[in-house]
């Protein structure tokens, strides 16, 4: 903090980000003085704490002593506490008032359940408070007009405490190391997170899906229903309209999920058509439309899992699965027709 900044213009308000200190708890809080939240409550005893004064200074709000002044909750931007771990640490998070603890406390005491990362941060000193101006600039350090002399003294104390210690060459060298450490940390974190997500996905989605497909495959194979349908359909495969019908039947929403696994239709009719084309009984133009006709059901057993892999919500899966199944009923015969039309040149 240099002296020049104090004289910069304006009383515009800006958000601040409050980081946890080295021994602190939480991810940090973004304090935005919007919606009439114009008071920083200092619930520390002994007047206004420098941390409360600093938050008020950077956000253009007023710091008041919570022990002597009563403020409606909806006007409170944040409560600054110096709690030893039981009472204040819990009552303000319980009221969903962002709570900044001077001491390095974490969830504990009878109100521990209310102390969550989105509402609480601890081990906060003046250095942990950073401006987050909407225009990206450092907001002016302008004390608001209605602060009393006591608050002004506190502001001076806050500024003194905010002054950087050391500096010069050491700061530059350590800055390089810090930046290098941050980069390494972020790479390691990314790899770790992706690995964790992969294992999670395999365990919660892919393995259950494999078990489910195995079951379905067993049922389909054991009952022979797909093979039976394929055998019934194979005589009509030898003319274009028959191929469209096969495409439609394969894509019927109640058949496609059980025709998908095992690919009996593709095997039976594909082999039949292939051999017919090979011996010259059918023109080669039939190859492409047949390919689309016998594959209308492909993946229909996989839709819920595919949606789950895309991290879809259960509601999305419930709506998305029939949507895809029904759309197959339209796309499958259309694909056969298009394949037939483009096969004329072959």
């Amino acid at each position: 903090m240099t002296g020049t900044e104090i004289e910069t213009t304006g009383t515009e308000t800006g958000a601040v980000f409050v980081r946890p200190g080295s021994g602190g708890w939480g991810n940090g809080l973004l304090l935005d003085p919007a919606n009439g939240k114009d008071v920083v409550l200092s619930v520390t005893g002994g007047g206004i704490h420098p941390v409360a004064a600093r938050i008020a200074e950077l956000t253009g709000t007023t710091a008041v002593d919570g022990f002597t002044t009563s403020i409606p909750d909806e006007k409170v931007l944040a409560a600054v506490i110096n709690c030893g771990g039981t009472a204040r640490i819990g009552v303000y998070p319980r009221k969903r008032i962002p709570t900044v603890d001077i001491y390095p406390g974490g969830p504990g005491g009878p109100l521990a359940e209310f102390i969550t990362e989105d509402i609480f941060v601890s081990d906060v000193g003046v250095k942990q408070i950073e401006p987050r101006a909407s225009d990206g600039s450092t907001p002016a350090a302008a004390p608001v007009a209605d602060e009393g002399p006591t608050a002004a003294e506190r502001l001076a104390a806050a500024k003194a405490a905010a002054a950087p210690v050391g500096g010069g060459a050491f700061a530059r060298v350590s800055g390089v190391f810090v930046r290098f450490g941050e980069i390494v940390g972020s790479i390691v974190n990314t790899f770790l997170a992706s690995g964790r997500q992969t294992v999670q996905l395999v365990l919660t989605t892919i393995l259950p899906f494999m078990a489910y497909v195995s079951l379905l495959l067993g049922i389909v194979n054991y009952t022979g229903v797909a093979k039976w349908i394929a055998t019934v359909l194979s005589p009509i495969a030898t003319n274009p309209v028959g191929l469209i019908v096969i495409g439609i039947i394969g894509a019927l929403p109640f058949l496609s999920p059980i025709l998908g696994p095992g690919a009996a239709i593709a095997q039976v009719i594909g082999t039949l058509m292939g051999s017919q084309i090979a011996i010259g009984a059918l023109p080669v133009q039939y190859a492409l439309p047949t390919l689309f006709a016998i594959n209308g059901q492909v993946g229909c057993d996989f839709i819920p899992v595919g949606l789950a892999l895309g991290e879809a919500k259960p509601e999305t899966v419930a709506v998305g699965t029939p949507a895809v199944l029904l759309s197959r009923l339209i796309t499958a015969p259309t694909a056969v027709i298009i394949a037939y039309l483009v096969s004329f040149g072959l």
Partner: peptide, 30 residues
């Protein structure tokens, strides 16, 4: 706790844990 006496002096504030057990953690203000 280490700041319990400070709390008492500044705020008249003490948190008393009654029979918390031998191995219960002592919070700084308690």
């Amino acid at each position: 706790g280490e700041i319990a006496n400070d709390n008492l002096a500044s705020l008249g504030h003490v948190v008393v844990y009654l029979d918390p057990g031998e191995d219960a953690a002592l919070l700084p203000g308690a």
